[in-house]
Design a binder for these strands. Sequence first.
DNA 1: AGATCCATGTAAGACGTTACATGATTTG
DNA 2: CAAATCATGTAACGTCTTACATGGATCT
Lengths: 194, 194
Amino acid sequence: MLDVRMLCLATLMGHEASGYDIKKELERGVSSGMIDASFGSIYPALARLADEGLITARAESGRGRGDKKIYAMTPEGRAYFLRTLAGPMPDEKYRSPFLFAMLFAADLPRDQVVRMIDAQIAVWEARLALADQTLPRDEAATGPRFVNGIAQTMLRAGLDFLRRHRAGLEAAAEASPQPASPAPQGARAREMTS
Amino acid sequence: MLDVRMLCLATLMGHEASGYDIKKELERGVSSGMIDASFGSIYPALARLADEGLITARAESGRGRGDKKIYAMTPEGRAYFLRTLAGPMPDEKYRSPFLFAMLFAADLPRDQVVRMIDAQIAVWEARLALADQTLPRDEAATGPRFVNGIAQTMLRAGLDFLRRHRAGLEAAAEASPQPASPAPQGARAREMTS
DNA sequence: AGATCCATGTAAGACGTTACATGATTTG
DNA sequence: CAAATCATGTAACGTCTTACATGGATCT
């Protein structure tokens, strides 16, 4: 599980929505960055879910913009969703191009490594800001608050680490200046270890 | 990038290997948990990379077990790999069934939530143990050390958070006991938590 | 002797993205 | 009026997994 179907159902657990709405919530919601889905997968998924009776479709037209299909959970849908959450879940997967690239930091020019770290800091800071802003003081939303909390905690730890090591690299660069750019072959960045 | 091709090249950056070897290193290596690949994608990828001249194939037979194809980087392969690392990278994606499920903690029976947290603690503890053990005191391997370091830092932060909240849930359960709903199922292992 | 590991590969199918096709409405 | 946003859908394509097909070697 944890496919487009579940993503759609998850959104509809909160409130009814159209395919378009769901896409937007996945982009700028609590789970943004975690998972994403495109229209090409959302629309067929919604059609199939409606077929199976897990959600209902209601057409809304005339008002403001044109035709719009609004989907809502059925009791069977809710049951199915919660049952699936209780069932076996696939392993988590953290797919990070940044960490992958950093594995080869020693083979890359130091200034490129610094640039990558800066970029990652920016990404995580943005994610942290999103988490701060996404969840107001809604006491009832324990689930989202929990997820936001753990995300913030881990992001802050990661950012700390990055900032400390970035500073270390800068210092090392001043101690032994290294010409920038593409593959001077012998050069190795060294004092990352802390 | 960050597909099977890059995964194979990444492994071969370190040392020559067969398809089988690569699979195993991806399973129990630094990047395990981050990315995985199956034989069905590795073997074709290696064949294509050899076709393109980015790696060489050498057959090794007779010794011990039967036929085995050992692949090794070419200079072009190395250049291609590093060039790709320097190029544009896709966004990171953290796909966590656990966090996804926790978004709906309020809709799930409390003991199921506790069980999920315990399971996640076990997973992260295992990952942490792997990180501790994976990297010896190899001073030269700055990249892997960096990646391991940040992984440990973030995992420890996450584990802290989970343990604190698990304790909070237990306390709440004693204050207002709530029966388990869907399937009582039986006893559950509990001693993993530390 | 049977299970498990080593070792390679192919084929079918799941799942998702990008690009295409279409059209109304709002905003600058 | 042009551009962006709202809104839905289909088709082609890519990528990866699962299952299949095969066979030798090692361990119990």
